[in-house]
């Protein structure tokens, strides 16, 4: 009895000691963006990351007709959504991106060692704490594969050829625009309520609102907490709370109230409906099930 307790004590002490050593030698106390982790920590993280992504990406189904292809449309898409951080052949990343930690990777180099499924995985799901966003639900499936094909073709693209493609493309597409999300199996979604929660995550709703089911800072009150938003009599203090009005409000806040601080986030109608479903599922009084009484504003 006494002996097993002693072994347990020694074991716990060893774990604590190892933890303290990793924390201090690994410089985990340094939270600044001007110093990378020591090489062995960096390598360790990369090893774990690549092992996990390799396993996950195996389940990504490559669509028929997919090819590594750099054309004017895909180059314009890349320039608009990716080049700010990753740069492009002969084009530096924007100033802000130079100070990011980790530094956004050069994708021509990444394309040389990663299969298309992994590139697609990064584009769609992003990478936690790396600065890489998830484009899931905010970019069409077709555009995500177009970008995957472009990145795969980047190692063969000279700076002059890239500039030429952009020239041919002319106007760049809007940064974030409402997209009809195509039907297809979503990794994170099981129903429209659950899909609404995921959509609220990737539209950064939680940076202004407290939302049950989405983890974030405990004290943000830029907009009101949304736990009871589905049960409130008014939306944004101006619009009678009905499902259609909720969708209208999420898609175009300024059409509802030109003075509102809530920005338009380019949410498609389909996703706005999912978000509304999630909000109504949260509140104790579900007004989406109330009797419809016309659609007037008040």
């Amino acid at each position: 009895m006494r002996r097993s307790r002693r072994i347990l004590g020694i074991g716990l002490a060893a774990i604590l000691l190892a933890g303290a050593a990793v924390f201090s030698l690994g410089e985990f106390y340094n939270l600044t963006a001007i110093r990378q982790h020591p090489l062995w920590v960096f390598r360790g993280i990369a090893l774990g990351r690549d092992a996990l992504i390799g396993m996950e990406a195996e389940y990504v189904a490559v669509p028929d007709g997919f090819e590594l292809r750099a054309d004017p449309a895909s180059a314009a898409l890349y320039q608009k959504h990716c080049a700010q951080c990753h740069g492009a052949p002969g084009v530096a990343a924007e100033e802000f991106a130079l100070g990011m930690m980790p530094v956004p990777s050069n994708l021509a180099a990444a394309a040389k060692r990663r299969p298309a499924q992994e590139v697609y995985w990064f584009i769609r799901y992003g990478l936690k704490m790396s600065g890489m966003p998830a484009w899931d639900m905010r970019m069409s499936e077709a555009d995500m594969w177009r970008l995957t094909g472009f990145v795969g073709a980047m190692p063969g693209l000279s700076p002059a050829a890239y500039a030429e493609l952009l020239e041919q493309a002319g106007e760049l597409p809007d940064a974030i625009r409402p997209v009809a999300v195509e039907a297809g199996p979503l990794k994170t979604a099981i129903g429209s309520v659950e899909r609404g929660r995921a959509a609220m995550q990737v539209h950064a709703c939680r940076s202004c609102h407290l939302i049950p089911g989405i983890v974030g800072a405990p004290d943000v009150f830029v907009g009101p907490p949304l736990d009871e938003a589905g049960g409130r009599a008014y939306i944004a203090g101006v619009l009678r709370n009905t499902p259609d009005n909720m969708v209208r409000w999420i898609m175009d806040p300024q059409a509802v109230d030109p003075l509102s601080a809530m920005p338009s986030l380019g949410v498609s109608e389909a996703l706005a409906r999912d978000m509304a479903a999630y909000l109504y599922s949260l509140s104790s009084l579900d007004r989406s099930k109330a009797e419809p009484e016309g659609d007037e504003d008040r």
Partner: peptide
């Protein structure tokens, strides 16, 4: 619950959202 809760007024960034 017609209007928003006034439970965290000192931290609220906007009045009436505007």
């Amino acid at each position: 619950n017609s209007g928003p809760p006034l439970t965290h007024m000192p931290r609220q960034v906007y009045v009436a959202g505007v």
